[in-house]
Write a protein that binds this DNA or RNA. Structure first.
Length: 502
RNA sequence: GUCUCGUUAGCUCAGUCGGUAGAGCAUCUCACUUUUAAUGAGGGGGCCCUAGGUUCGAAUCCUAGACGGGACACCA
């Protein structure tokens, strides 16, 4: 049984004792209360008063008991609420007759209580609530982890995030910051007249990214559905339909490996902007970062682990090909020659499929020699066309896509491009992907989406679109190095213990 | 998927060469009416992750597995 542990049994017994004393351990009551923060600020003046107390005031605090020190006929407790900690004091002679002895052993660490009394200053100078009344609001029957070391075990922290948040208050700060970031991103795009939309999560055809999808079944229609790997193709249909600036902040699902930068479901913002080009995207991206740094009151230089990242704008801009030489230190005479690239990679003990196209081989060079050297925010521009199946060809150089990626701290944060809007070209590129899928068994290659091609056939104005990984953005802005630390409930294998127990 | 490290009381962790399972906090009993991880005295609490194997004897050594952390691969 889930509650067979001896400590839980002891606490269940205490809840029963409360009931037999006529005290409901789970009352449905709420009395207006002030927060710990309000209390500490409002009654700061008591510290300076001569009597060190203000008995005319009656204040109610609510919170979870985090620390409890019982000294015979009096006790101190630290309550925690959403704002922080506050101390209360209660004693036998200040509570209603006989009440103290009733509850002394029945209210304990972990319980949620409501305390009413007046502010005073203790001998050690701490502003404290002197209780005239102390009610239990919610009995906790599971004990909290150790008060000093807290909860260290990463597995328990991720599986039981609620417990992690109770015991490790700093965890909450990360998620508060995450919420602010998402809110600011939304506000930024709204202020630029972008419209927030919601497009399907259940896709008949997975599309918009090279990724393996989750597959599910829709009973009513008896059809397979794919959890979306990207909202891209739907958002661009909206541009065809006449929305000229749209964005969506939502979850994407990719059925791939998990590690400290990958969770099977992750959050992205994608935005599409008609009558704009990829150069406009780079500008608005810089503006977004300026807006975030201003409103989050972050310094322009942030530490990320042992790296120092300078977010001063404008961000560096360098073309894909140039970066191979100037950042990757790869001789310029080999970066456009398939044979030479293969030789170079082999010399560096990197195995590649010799049938790869030039663009894919250049991508191997980039991934191995350039990416992790891009610490300060850097736009890598002008990608090879064959690794950019949805991007528009450059009018000047047909081998190059009007595309960029933004790298920060050695990681891709954003990907944007001028969208391909030639329906015939799009059709051919889908076909090439499908052929690659059939020929090489590449499970991540894109599927043919004829309706999307049909949509383009009605005419999509020149459009620029970009995706920004929100989880990774939060990681960088909060100096977290595991995606699990910026996800409230990261994906975990099924928990064995709790299933076999019940 | 591969490599690597880990799993011992509710929590945080020790456990030597293979020889009866340990500490702090928490819990229980007692004392204590201004504490700060309160204090003092005493008690209880274990599927040493699981299954095999080696051995007179395994928390400890070996094999396989489960779960987790880290690194790599794929990807964003």
């Amino acid at each position: 049984m889930i509650f067979e542990n001896q400590y839980i049994q002891e606490r269940i017994k205490k809840a029963d004792e409360l009931r037999s004393e006529g005290i409901n351990p789970y009352p449905n009551i709420t009395k207006p209360a002030v927060t710990s923060k309000e209390f500490n600020e409002t009654y700061e003046y008591v510290k300076k008063s001569e009597s060190k107390r203000d008995e005319d005031k009656s204040v109610t605090l609510k919170g979870r008991i985090k620390l409890l020190r019982i000294m015979g006929k009096a006790a101190f407790a630290k309550l925690e609420d959403s704002c922080g900690l506050v101390q209360i004091y209660y004693s036998r002679d200040e509570l209603p007759e006989g009440y103290y002895n009733k509850i002394k052993k029945l209210i304990e660490v972990g319980d949620i209580v409501e305390a009413t009394g007046f502010p005073f200053i203790t001998q050690t100078g701490e502003l404290t609530l002197h209780c005239k009344d102390l009610k239990i609001i919610t009995k906790a029957i599971s004990p909290l982890p150790e008060k000093f070391h807290g909860l260290q075990d990463a597995e328990t922290r991720y599986r039981q995030r609620y417990l992690d948040m109770i015991v490790n208050p700093k965890v909450k700060d990360i998620f508060i910051q995450r919420s602010r970031i998402v809110s600011l991103v939304r506000r930024f795009f709204e202020s630029k007249t972008f419209l927030e939309v919601e497009t399907p999560m259940l896709h008949p055809i997975p599309g918009g990214a090279n990724a393996k999808p989750f597959i599910t079944h829709h009973n009513a229609l008896n059809v397979e559905r794919y959890l979306r790997v990207a909202p891209e193709l739907y958002l661009k249909r909206l541009i065809v339909g006449g929305m000229e600036a749209v964005f969506e902040i939502n979850r994407n699902f990719r059925n791939e490996g998990m590690d400290h930068t990958h969770n099977p479901e992750f959050t992205m913002i994608e935005f599409y902007w008609a009558y704009h080009r990829y150069t406009d995207l780079m500008n608005i991206t810089e503006e977004l970062f300026e807006y975030l740094f201003l409103n989050l009151q972050l310094p322009k230089i942030l530490n990320y682990g042992d790296k120092r990242v300078d977010f001063s704008t404008p961000f560096a801009k360098i073309s894909y090909i140039d970066s191979l030489t100037s950042i990757g230190n790869i001789p310029a005479d080999i970066t456009s020659d398939k044979e030479k690239i293969i030789n170079f990679l082999n010399q560096n003990n990197i195995k590649v499929d010799p049938n790869l196209t030039l663009g894919y081989l250049q991508a191997e060079l980039f991934d191995n020699f350039v990416e992790d050297k891009l610490i300060d925010p850097t736009f890598i521009t002008d990608f090879p066309i064959d690794i950019s199946p949805l991007a528009r060809r450059s009018d000047e150089n047909p081998q190059i896509a009007e595309r960029f990626e933004l790298f920060i701290a050695g990681r891709e944060i954003a990907n944007g491009f001028s969208e391909l809007n030639d329906p015939i070209d799009q059709y051919e590129r889908f076909k090439a992907q499908v052929e690659a899928k059939d020929a090489t068994g590449d499970e991540e290659a894109m599927h043919m989406d004829l309706d999307y091609v049909r949509a383009l056939s009605y005419g999509m104005p020149p459009t620029a679109g970009e995706g920004i990984g929100i989880d990774r953005l939060v990681m960088i802005l909060t100096n977290q190095h595991s995606i699990r630390d910026v996800l409230l409930f990261p994906a975990m294998r099924p928990e064995v213990a709790i299933q076999t127990n019940d």
